[in-house]
Design a protein around this nucleic acid. Sequence first.
DNA 1: AGCACGCCGACT
DNA 2: GTCGGCGTGCTC
Length: 623
Amino acid sequence: MPLVAKIRFSSPLPQLDKEFDYLVPNRLAAVLDFGFLVQVPFGLGGKEKTGVLCGLTDVSSEREKLLSITSVSSITSVLSREQLALCHSVAARQAGTTGELLSTAIPKRYTRIEKEFRSSDSFSLELSDKPATSTLIEHLQTHPRTYFMPELLGNLSGSGWPSEFVLAALHEFSAGRSSLVVLPDFAELARFEEALFSLGLQGISYRHASSDTGSQRHLNHLYASTKIGINYGLRSASFAPAKDLGLILLWDDGDESHIEQSAPYWHSREVLLQRAELEKAKFVIASHAPSTEVVRLIEIDHLVPLKASGPKPQSTVTELNDRLDATSFALISNAIKSGNSVLVQIATAGWASSLLCVSCREIRVCSVCSSSIWIDPSGLFRCRSCKTNTALPPCSCGKTATRPTVLGSSAIAQQLERSFPEATVLHSNGENRLTNLAGGSLLVVSTPGAEPRVEGGYSVVLIADAARMVGAPRLRALEQSLGKWANAVSLARPNATVIFVGLRDSLEAKMLEFDFYGAVKDDFTDRVELALPPQTRIASVTSTNTEDHQNLIMELASLLESGKTRELKVDNPNTLALDYSYSYGLELAELLSATTLKLTKTSKAKKPGERVYRINMDDSKVI
DNA sequence: AGCACGCCGACT
DNA sequence: GTCGGCGTGCTC
């Protein structure tokens, strides 16, 4: 009976997104196994192509003319059955192809690395003591799917999230199972590594990060496939191999870096939720402030929350003004004078750029709806709320000249820089990011997400643009602001004061208590009433041109009338946005894939390497 | 993606 | 009568 291999290719092409059958020659039958890379003749030219072995069967194929595998090109499996199942399931959910996800799951091959791997010694870690336990570890015994809020100010006492993660992963290791830790960006990766290395766990840890050299990634991939260890990395590590995976830890799922920017636009949270199910692993999402998706998962009893207690700073809320009130000013003054550090978080242009009058420094507002005005990417004055573009009327003080509040030039930050010449002023932002500071009389002005840590923690944290961040005209402005504030607050020392500028009503009340969970839950409740994500999901299909877009609308006419989805109004004329329920997700993804595949074949605008339609099953930016 | 097949217009 | 344009479709 001939042995037949099922082969897949790492290709985004939907036409190639299936298994191809090849005969296994006798000389290779003993070597080959699931997940091996092989060379096969493919296509009319019979050229060699690299494929992955995704199944072996000795059932005689119904096809007559099977070609044979030419050669094997890996020394061990580079893809587990679980990883393949994950790629399938993510592709189905995201309206993508299994093939394009295989290229995320399988690194480039280096022959030199295979030699090194083959001759490497087996590293064994001597665990001198029984590993330490923690509240999180104990909680996981009874609640395998958990949302964890670590101590808000735990960084200084050593009970911050990095050490919580390392302890949990080490506990899993000592029970003979691997773990997988996924972090939003390199700053968090560095903090996790710091905690990992301080316990001397380098030898059992495998990093899966695009910043590493290709050969390093390949080596770690081989170790992770064959050894129990602690695997970690940024979002693409969600697909990394992990032998006998027992625990998945995800930090700050609300951070936008967890969303893959190319098709099929998956999110670490959703990939890992599926992975935890497939591999029967324990699953922890942790953050200082939950995402609304986390609140939903708790509400439907998929996650059980665990909130660590601990000291909190003082909280005050001041009036919205471009000058600080006297009390806040005095707090900052005292901190600087006594050699302590102050953090000022200011919004970036992308968060809430607006225009100030050069004379009276009032924020210029729209004459129609009184929302703030900004300069849009095409250079026009445009209202942020009603989107009308108007000639800018004179300010109430009579002057017409304006200046934009841009990165690093928040009025409050400028005022502080002038008022405290004795302070060392430092700026940190996405492009020019500070990470760790020694402390002293520092005035650190930072954009959200770029805040450096300071030795001993900040004495004052000023959330200068709180009101403006929340007011940004985006669905997720509130929850994302809360996430950014919580992360900034977590850098404070226990007796510090946090000042939120311009908050009112229930949000003011919540922030006086640092009740980030309660504030996001309120946001979620509002969205349930409005039937907006994450109560529903929103997909978008963007066409390269109007004609293809019109064809799509015609093709989907019966779907749009069926009531299974609702079409949403969006700015881009070539984008179709659809609102749908979680239970309809798989079916809709399948329908959109099939429809766009069909239309792509006859599209006139088809260019090599370019997609005529881009499907995003969870477009977080479309509204 | 490649690559070949195939069915219409311009050329020795 | 043949050469070649790239639209359509397949690759185990």
